[in-house]
Amino acid sequence: MESIKIRQHIGDDGILHLDLPVGLIGREIEVMVIYQPVRLLTSSDRHLVDLYGICADDPIIIDDRGISEVLDDDLVGAFD
């Protein structure tokens, strides 16, 4: 069994048209279609997408010791 995931636009006629190259010729196959409407991104969503993963190299660790005193350093000039 193979799986193909695509994103397709449905036109004004309300009919989904699929052209899927499966690499088989002259064969019978069974096809199952599961569809889910896609939520369109707003401008604020796109900004969040741009930020996704920026802390991957410096993960935030939450444990039973609480908040580190190091985080209370003076932040003057940190955002210039």
Rank of each mutant, 00 (worst) to 15 (best):
V70W: 11
S44P: 05
Y35R: 11
V38A: 10
G77L: 03
H47L: 04
Q36A: 09
D63V: 06
I60G: 04
L40P: 11
I6K: 09
G26L: 14
V31N: 01
H47I: 07
Q8A: 08
S68T: 12
D73S: 05
M1K: 13
I54A: 02
P21Y: 15
P59D: 04
V76C: 11
V76L: 11
D63G: 14
R39L: 06
D45I: 04
F79C: 06
Q8G: 00
L18W: 07
I25Q: 10
I4Y: 15
I4Q: 03
V70S: 13
L71I: 11
I54T: 04
D58S: 09
L51R: 08
I25C: 08
Q36P: 01
D45H: 11
D12S: 02
R27H: 12
H17A: 01
G53K: 04
S3W: 13
Q8W: 04
D64A: 15
L20G: 00
D19L: 14
D63H: 11
I54L: 03
H9P: 10
H9Y: 12
D73R: 10
I34V: 13
D19T: 15
H9C: 05
Q8K: 05
F79W: 11
Y35A: 02
K5L: 12
I62Y: 06
H47N: 01
G11Q: 00
V31D: 00
H17V: 08
A56N: 11
D72Q: 14
D58H: 07
G14A: 09
R39I: 02
K5I: 08
D13C: 05
G53I: 00
L20Q: 08
R39H: 13
M1E: 12
I15P: 01
I6C: 10
D57A: 07
L24G: 02
L71S: 04
S68D: 09
E30A: 05
L48V: 01
D64N: 15
G26V: 07
L71P: 00
D57Q: 07
S43L: 08
S44W: 06
M1W: 03
I29K: 06
I25N: 14
H47G: 00
Y52K: 07
D57S: 09
I62Q: 07
R7T: 10
G77N: 02
I60T: 15
R65M: 00
P59G: 03
F79R: 10
I34R: 12
P37F: 13
V76D: 10
V76A: 13
I60S: 08
I61S: 09
L40Y: 11
M1N: 13
P59A: 10
R39E: 11
D74W: 14
S43R: 08
I61E: 09
E30D: 13
P59R: 06
K5C: 04
S68E: 02
R7K: 14
R7Q: 05
I60F: 12
R46L: 15
E28D: 10
Y35F: 12
M1T: 15
I60H: 12
S3R: 13
G14L: 10
S3E: 14
L18T: 10
